[in-house]
Simulated assay, not measured.
Amino acid sequence: MIRNEGLHHVSIIVSDLERSKSFYERVLGLREIERPPFGFPGAWYAVGGSGQQLHIIVHDGETKRAGGIDSRDGHFAVSVSDYGDAIDWLERHGIEYRANPNSMTGFAQIFMLDPDRNIIELNAAMRPEGREA
């Protein structure tokens, strides 16, 4: 049996490194961390304080999605401390999103797209009365 110890990183494909770095730093507030000198462009980010990482990789292949926000498509999720603050932040930055404050999952969700149409979920605890935190 494989005994997992947690999720180390998620890698996503981007087409414009500087545009993507701006998005992940400015919109999601991620902190860039050191990356080995691979022979292709990209960047690594710390996500939270438990060692998880997001790796963005520049790739010219045809693996990017063209559609809109689809919560059933491949995505990664980042937990946020305050659902309402996250919504306010996205609106102030003109980021399109789809909110699901009373998800049957037991946590409030926000789905959005990065500049390359990668789907990102933000989630937060719901208040006991079913309202988002």
Results as ranks from 00 to 15, higher is better:
Val10Glu: 03
Pro101Gly: 00
Ala66Lys: 15
Asn118Lys: 02
Arg117Thr: 06
Phe38Met: 10
Ile87Pro: 00
Arg3Asn: 11
Leu17Ser: 08
Arg127Gly: 13
Gln52Glu: 12
Leu90Arg: 08
Pro115Cys: 09
Ala99Pro: 11
Ala46Gln: 12
Ala43Cys: 10
Arg98Ala: 05
Tyr24Asp: 08
Met126Trp: 04
Gly42Gln: 06
Thr63His: 10
Glu62Leu: 12
Asp116Met: 07
Leu90Phe: 15
Ala133Pro: 00
Pro37Met: 04
Arg127Gln: 15
Met1Ser: 15
Gln53Asn: 01
Asn4Gly: 13
Phe107Glu: 10
Glu132Tyr: 07
Ile110Cys: 04
Gly42Phe: 07
Ala66Ile: 12
Gly130Ile: 06
Glu91Thr: 14
Phe111Tyr: 15
Ala108Ser: 14
Gly74Lys: 05
Leu30Cys: 09
Glu5Pro: 00
Asn102Cys: 01
Val10Arg: 01
Ser103Glu: 00
Val14Gln: 11
Leu17Glu: 11
Val47Gln: 01
Arg131Pro: 01
Val14Glu: 10
Arg19Ala: 15
Ser22Gln: 14
Ser79Asp: 05
Met104Trp: 02
Ile110Gln: 04
Ile87Phe: 00
Glu132Trp: 07
Gly6Met: 03
Gly48Leu: 02
Gly39Arg: 08
Ile119Pro: 00
Gly74Leu: 11
Ala66His: 13
Gly48Pro: 06
Ile95Met: 13
Gly84Cys: 00
Phe23Tyr: 15
Asp82Gly: 08
Ser11Pro: 00
Arg72Tyr: 15
Phe23His: 11
His93Asn: 15
Gly61Lys: 07
Pro128His: 14
Gly84Trp: 06
Ala77Ile: 06
Phe76Cys: 09
Gly68Cys: 10
Ser11His: 02
Gly74Gln: 09
His59Ile: 01
Val80Lys: 07
Val27Met: 10
Val27Tyr: 11
Ile69His: 13
Asn118Glu: 02
Gly48Val: 03
Arg26His: 14
Gly74Ser: 11
Ser79Trp: 10
Val47Thr: 01
Glu34Tyr: 09
Pro101His: 01
Arg127Thr: 14
Ala43Glu: 04
Glu132Arg: 11
Glu129Asp: 15
Ile12Ser: 09
Gly67Leu: 11
Ile110Pro: 08
Arg117Leu: 12
His75Asp: 12
Trp44Met: 07
Asp73Leu: 14
Gly94Arg: 13
Phe40Cys: 05
Val10Ala: 09
Arg26Cys: 06
Arg127Ile: 04
Gly130Cys: 09
Gly61Val: 06
Glu132Cys: 05
Glu62Cys: 05
Gly49His: 00
His55Asn: 07
Ile56Ser: 09
Pro36Ile: 05
Ile56Thr: 10
Tyr83Glu: 04
Glu5Val: 07
Asp73Met: 13
Met112Ala: 14
Glu132Val: 06
Asn102Val: 02
Leu28Gln: 11
His55Asp: 06
Leu122Asp: 04
Gln52Lys: 00
Gln53Cys: 02
Glu5Met: 09
Glu62Gly: 12
Ala99Gly: 01
Ser11Glu: 14
Pro41Trp: 01
Gly74Glu: 05
Val27Gly: 07
Leu30Ala: 08
Leu54Arg: 03
Gly48Phe: 02
Met104Glu: 12
Leu122Ile: 02
His59Val: 02
Arg65Ala: 13
Ser22His: 15
Ile13Trp: 10
Phe76Ala: 09
His93Lys: 14
Lys64Ala: 13
Arg131Leu: 03
Leu90His: 06
Pro101Cys: 01
Ala124Phe: 01
Asp16Leu: 09
Glu34Pro: 02
Gln52Cys: 02
Arg131Cys: 02
Arg131Trp: 03
Ala46Pro: 01
Gln109His: 03
